[in-house]
Amino acid sequence: MTLTLTSPPVAAPLRKRRRRQHGTVLLLMGPWILGFLIFFAYPLVATVWYSFTRFDLLSPPSFVGLRNYRYFLFEDPNSWKSLRNTLWFVIFMMPARLISALLIGQLLVKIRRGGSIYRTIFFLPSLAPPVAATIAFAFLFNPGTGAVNALLGRFGIDGPLWLSDPAYAKPVLLALGVWGMGDVMVIFLAALLDVPNDQYEAAGLDGANAVQQFRYITLPNLSPVLLFTAITGVIQTLQYFTQAAVASSLAAGVATTGGGSASSLGYPDGATLTYPLWLYQMGFKNFYLGYACAMGVILLVISLVFTIFLLRRSAAFLGPDAAR
């Protein structure tokens, strides 16, 4: 899918209807405009304001200047860690999902018979609710009773502690992400099937091998889709919350009774403490809501970079009437 911002030209005789249309447009767009103001414009401004305050929901926000930002940059032991963890997922999990989806899509294009059965099977995991899928993985990778270590044990391998080991927790979540790559695969599949066949035929006649064909025909044809998927993938990964939250609390399995236990979010050793997880913890468990807003503003800046990049690319698809 690409951003197609063009729209069909309007026939000249119909132009005078436009004036009347303004009322219609307002009627049709009315709810959206309200939604834009209430759930986008206002909260955005408010977030920026709160980020300069101390706010705990119980008493009104009080202005503290840059204190929250200073704490984020220099004092918070977890802010950079959570950012690093989220970037790890952006750098490793997101590309792993794209590459595996592309390779499997490519395989499906090649297979003629039974393709639709494979397609359904490969797509199925992406439908699994994230909470359910994460619990399933936490169970399968359970160091004591899980199937994975049982299998490794048969080959004489002493399996690691997986989600309870800081070195393996993120890779397990990466595996979970790759397992659910079906949504991306389907998009790539559509794009792959759109690559004109004669290009391959011509290349075949010139003696290009499969790798060369992929490099010089498939990739260029796919690049708009790849770009779009990559950017939305980055923004999606910046929000990575559910899987990390569920996996860490299951792995920690700490009792809630009595103080002194490590907070379960991000367990083990903060290895799965993603940025949104820390924001949630600080805002809605520790009630540093002003600080959570400062984290929100920083997240906004990061995601805006990617959004603007996407919008600029989409400008290329803008039709002639977009200049108006």
Binding site: P77, G259, G260, A262, S263, Y267, P268, G270, N286, F287
Partner: peptide, 26 residues
């Protein structure tokens, strides 16, 4: 008992994070 602070049990969570590191030999 564990004493009370203005931000509740946050100090205990921070200690818990530290202990987690300690136990892993980090």
């Amino acid at each position: 008992t564990s004493p009370s602070t203005g931000n509740g049990a946050v100090y205990q969570n921070q200690f818990g994070d530290f202990v987690d590191k300690w136990q892993r030999g980090q």
